[in-house]
Amino acid sequence: MSFFRREREPARRSAAEEDLDSLLALVAESRGFTCAFARDGGSVTLRGETTLTVRLTGLRREAGRRAREDWPVLVSEHLAHAVATAGELDVSDLEQAGPLLRTRVEAVDEIADLTRVVGRHLNADLVELLTAAGRPVRPEEAGCWPVPTARALDLAVENVRREERLQVEQIELAGTPVTRLTGTAPSAAAHLRWLADYLPVPPDGVLVALPDPYTLLLHPVDGIGVVRAIERLRLHAARTGGLSPQVYWWHGGRLTLIRADIVARDGQTRLVVAPPPEFAQVLARLAV
């Protein structure tokens, strides 16, 4: 009796995968390419004036999270980006991109579409973006990596720490002492995680202003003088018009907004502070 080993047939493709492949082929043809899909659907080879292979794992994941009416734009952007960056760093390959991963903090309102970037919220106002070689990582690129997004962001933060130690300066804002940390990369906010390497951090944390992605302004929460510091930091941040005009509280590994509005009334300007409940309790204790 003889036995023959049958070649394993490729897994049956779902209707959604076949529809996405058809759309990919249509867009590729409109750009002057013919395409050949890998048997596992993980990539497609485009042949035209040049030949390149485009990874599809992340694109398929992103398409699965979106409505079908979003697919044409998603596919067109993905192929256009692949063609434009052919021969450059392949961010979808974590082995290549890993050493170049960094983070950058941006105001949420400055991000046109949060679904087109990879990052995590520091709070409702600020988002920590994942970048590679200085540009934001696209979800389709991160979707090709063998690690979850949270782990990739942690890798980026580790890179930031290894890359640079911030410069420490003691300055004054209208008589209020403030510590200024500055760096050469737009990743200063990542250093909040290891502030104790730069200055003594009291149990109640520190006030933080972020005038730009390269700078942190800090004041310890260690006495009732913190009320004056909030005012000085808020007015300074408003004048710089940079990353954020607000003041934050770094405590317990979290960055919490201390809302402070500049109000003009009867020809006078004053600051109206509305601290979050937990910080208000700290202020009440410090005032005793």
Rank of each mutant, 00 (worst) to 15 (best):
77 E>N: 12
66 R>E: 14
36 A>P: 07
58 G>F: 02
19 D>V: 03
94 L>V: 10
99 P>I: 02
22 S>P: 07
57 T>Q: 15
80 A>T: 15
58 G>L: 08
46 L>W: 00
118 V>M: 08
72 P>K: 04
111 I>P: 01
8 R>K: 14
52 L>Y: 09
100 L>I: 05
118 V>K: 05
57 T>I: 14
81 H>N: 14
41 G>H: 05
88 E>K: 10
76 S>P: 01
24 L>D: 00
50 T>Y: 07
60 R>G: 05
72 P>V: 01
73 V>K: 14
41 G>C: 11
86 A>W: 12
43 S>M: 01
49 E>P: 00
26 L>P: 00
122 L>G: 02
10 P>L: 12
72 P>R: 01
36 A>S: 14
92 S>R: 03
99 P>G: 04
39 R>Q: 15
109 D>T: 11
98 G>Y: 12
67 A>H: 12
120 R>M: 09
74 L>Y: 03
109 D>G: 07
7 E>P: 02
67 A>V: 06
118 V>S: 03
65 R>G: 15
62 E>T: 06
18 E>Q: 13
40 D>A: 08
45 T>R: 13
83 V>A: 11
63 A>D: 06
31 R>K: 13
114 L>C: 08
70 D>H: 09
75 V>R: 08
31 R>S: 03
16 A>P: 06
8 R>S: 13
92 S>K: 01
19 D>L: 12
103 T>W: 03
35 C>Q: 01
100 L>E: 09
80 A>I: 01
99 P>V: 02
79 L>F: 07
110 E>S: 13
32 G>Q: 00
43 S>L: 08
74 L>M: 13
111 I>R: 00
34 T>Y: 04
54 V>Q: 04
74 L>I: 06
33 F>C: 03
115 T>F: 04
116 R>Y: 03
66 R>Q: 13
112 A>C: 02
15 A>N: 03
103 T>R: 01
96 Q>S: 14
21 D>R: 15
10 P>S: 11
44 V>C: 05
25 A>E: 14
61 R>N: 03
99 P>Q: 11
17 E>D: 10
113 D>H: 05
109 D>P: 02
43 S>G: 13
53 T>W: 06
111 I>Q: 10
